[in-house]
């Protein structure tokens, strides 16, 4: 299936949980936030949220700003 993560198309095989996706992307779970199809997925639900074909995922963190 194909999902769009931060604007880029990614091909993923099989069923995958959001928490597993983060591991595959080598992302540490601290102080990031995730949107799936414009809705925030609370951290507590990462391990129970299954990614579906066509999902649009946004993963954000903090950078320098004024």
């Amino acid at each position: 299936m194909q999902v769009i993560i931060n604007g880029e198309v990614h091909d993923l095989e099989g069923q995958i949980l959001l928490s597993e996706l983060l591991e595959r992307l080598d992302l540490k779970p601290g102080r990031i936030a995730i949107e799936r199809n414009l809705e925030i997925v609370p951290k507590a639900n990462w391990a129970s949220t299954t990614i579906s074909d066509g999902d649009r995922i946004e993963i954000v963190h903090f950078v320098g700003g004024g």
Binding site: L25, D26, L27, G30, I59, V60, H61, F62, V63, G66
Partner: peptide
Amino acid sequence: VTVAVRRVNLNRSEESLL
């Protein structure tokens, strides 16, 4: 201290500002 919200860069690991 102000900080900005931006997409995580998936192609390279970055030092965490925080």
